[in-house]
Every structure is written in structure tokens, then in C-alpha cells.
Write a protein that binds this DNA or RNA. Structure first.
Lengths: 210, 210
DNA sequence: GTCTATAGGGGGATAGAC
DNA sequence: GTCTATCCCCCTATAGAC
């Protein structure tokens, strides 16, 4: 913040591109370590070892461990938005919902990211900055889902009950996605089956012309 | 396990009742500390201070920190079963669902337990013993919910789509409850409104005679 | 810019006195 | 059964050499 812009600094100019790349490299290493040991279980030494740099160097790119989490929340948001954008490209809204929920349950079962998300969630409840980042992220995801609901409604594909808004359905879909993703991680449910059944239920609830 | 039964031991007999009481006392203290600092943030020193005993004494009642978590999962299961049993006493199934989801969203907003649950969940994904305890717990909750669905179906209050089982609906309700509870903690949704809208949606999906 | 070395502070768990 | 004192480990973050 106080740092002058590169052009006004003396000496060798900073290679902003190299900085961004190394930063991403360290963040990816942190993600891998947090994934297998949890946020509090992975030390800065673990992370820097994984990234192949020194601990002190890590602190040249992230002011604290907290910064790593905040950067990850932002990454997750972009990844989630892409996930939904990809799955909701099809025309059939309910088929898209089914595919999305099945993919989520499957992702939960593989636990590649589930533990990390739980860790971030828990951290959000104690750390105001993480909380704000995560709440903003969730709000944007709900908005994206609501848009898809609106579009399907405009196409006449689904109909909402009196007093239901597209946002209401978006929130419910978000909550359901969250729950199914989590339940998958505990081997509680068969993801494909859960998604198919969800579609049946939602189909009866949202299909128009009845 | 190797300890002989009290009756076969020499000297003053063990006061099993006093032991159980102190154990519960320490567990309650651990819950309070875990609640405000998280599982990894609360030290055994914090917990024993909260309970008013020494650290060494805590270890007379719990072999490790892990044992505290396992005991808490068991307590939570009993509490959750009681929660649903209490809320599903009414005759109107959909009204019961609405009340339960509203209560969950409200509980999530208050964050009295949400962080602890997230912590336990994350721990379950790394610790096999915690994982098994939590999976068993979730299975029992789903079974309890499924029973309520079956009962409502038997009364003719709701009807399932072809191929849907009561258990399918129970799982979906569980996942939805989980998601709504979590979303409440991030101030994402208005719990009462979400519950009412959920009822509208489920009402159209499950109501019979159409 | 990157490193080694270390400060400064907990952490979980236990030995042994009472 | 309960305690005080302590072991030995690891933590985040930084100072200062190169």
C-alpha cells in the first residue's frame, strides 16, 4: 500500500509477472498441505517445503497464514462459478440440477477439497475477515444460481409457487448442494442416486402446467 | 480395558457416580472452549482451567484430546435425535419440516454450535475414529427422518414420486437441513423465510392427490 | 530476493510428590 | 485422585547475512 509504483522506484524494476507466478505456486502448495493436514495442522514450514522455498520467502508473498486462506476463498469462488457455469449450459434446467448435484456428491466422496472447505468454514466463524470473504463468495454463488432459475422460468420450463422468488429457489439449491456435498464426504449417500431422486422431487415441485 | 472390575480390586472402592459426573463436567468445559476457539485453538490447558481442574486430572478422564471429540459426537447425536423427536411430534408433516428448518437456520445464525460442528466435520475427514463415529451418527439421524416420512406417507399426508423411497426423502431432508444450518451461520439467508419457502416447494412436491 | 538461524511462545502429554 | 513441575516438541514470524 505504501510501496511506490514500480515506475517511480529506483534500481531494477520488479518483475510483476514472476511475482504473481511464484505467489500462485506457493498458494497451490498451501492448498495441497491444507488438504491433507487441515488449516491448523499444516505449518508454514510444511507449506514452504512443499513449495520448495524457505519459510521467510513465503512471508515475502503472504503477510500471514490468514492471507493464504483469504486467497483460497477467492480461488474457490472463481472455481465454483466456473463449475456452475459449465454445468448449467444445457437447456434442460432440471437435468442440469441433477448433473450438478451428482457431481457435487461425487466430489464430496472423493474428499479432495471437502476437508479444506470445512476448515475454511470453521475459520470463517472465528475470523471476521475470512467470514466476510466467504459470505461475499456465497452471495455471488446464490446470485448465479438464481439467475439460472429465472432463465428457466422465463423459458416456461419451471413454474414457482405463489410467493416464491427465483432467489428463494436459488438459496434452497445452494443449501441443498452444500448438504449433499458434505454428506458425500461421509459416505452417507450414493451421489448419483441422491441427485436422480432430487430431480424427481424438484421436477414435481417446479414443473409448470399443473 | 486391563483394569480389573471394582469388586475385585483391593482398597477403597471407586465411586463410579462421582467419576461420571466429573467426566461430564470436563466434557462440558471442553465444549465451551471448543465453541469459542475451535478444536485446534483450545488447548488442554484452556479446557482444564475452564473446568477448574489440572491438566493431569483431565487426562485421568480422557486418554487424549481425540477422546473429547468422540464423546462430543455421541452427545450431539443424542441432542439431534431429541431435537427432531421434539419437532416432529405434530401431526402436519410439512409444518414440522418448516418448523425444523426454521429452527436450524436460527441455530446456525446464533453460531452457538455451528463452528464446533464444522470443526468436528473437518476432523472426521482426517481421523478415522471420528469419521466412523460421525458417519454412524448421521446414519441414525437419516433413519429417524426417514421414519417420519414413512409415517406421513402412511397417513396419506404426502405421496412420493415413482421410484422415490422414504429414505431418499429422508436423505434429502438431512442434506437440506445441513445446508440451511450452515448457510444460517454466514448470515446468507433469513431462516424463517427460507423455511417457509422450503415448505411451499416441498408441499408441491410431496402433497398427494395430484 | 532468497536464504539460514533463531526468537519467543505455546502445544500435548507425563513423572512423581502428596 | 489430584496436583505441580516439566519434558520435548512444534508453531508463526522475523533478523540479518548473502
Amino acid at each position: 500500500m505504501i510501496t511506490p509504483s514500480p515506475s517511480r522506484r529506483r534500481g531494477r524494476p520488479v518483475d510483476e509477472r514472476a511475482r504473481a507466478e511464484r505467489r500462485a505456486h506457493i498458494l497451490a502448495a498451501a492448498r495441497r498441505r491444507f488438504l491433507s493436514s487441515g488449516f491448523h495442522g499444516a505449518s508454514t514450514a510444511d507449506i514452504s517445503r512443499e513449495a520448495g522455498v524457505s519459510v521467510a520467502n513465503l512471508y515475502q508473498y503472504f503477510a500471514s497464514k490468514e492471507e493464504l486462506v483469504l486467497a483460497m476463498v477467492e480461488e474457490d469462488l472463481q472455481s465454483d462459478l466456473a463449475f456452475f457455469a459449465d454445468l448449467f449450459r444445457g437447456a434442460d434446467f432440471l437435468a442440469c440440477v441433477e448433473a450438478a448435484l451428482a457431481a457435487l456428491a461425487h466430489a464430496g466422496r472423493e474428499r479432495r477439497e471437502l476437508g479444506l472447505r470445512a476448515e475454511i468454514f470453521a475459520e470463517a466463524l472465528r475470523n471476521p475477515r475470512v467470514h466476510e470473504a466467504l459470505a461475499t463468495s456465497q452471495e455471488r454463488l446464490v446470485a448465479a444460481l438464481s439467475e439460472r432459475v429465472s432463465a428457466a422460468q422465463a423459458r416456461g420450463e419451471i413454474a414457482l409457487a405463489d410467493g416464491m422468488t427465483a432467489r428463494d429457489v436459488g438459496i434452497l439449491l445452494f443449501a441443498l448442494a452444500d448438504g449433499i456435498y458434505s454428506a458425500g464426504g461421509l459416505d452417507l449417500l450414493d451421489g448419483a442416486r441422491a441427485a436422480r431422486r432430487t430431480r424427481l422431487l424438484l421436477g414435481r415441485a417446479l414443473a409448470p402446467g399443473r
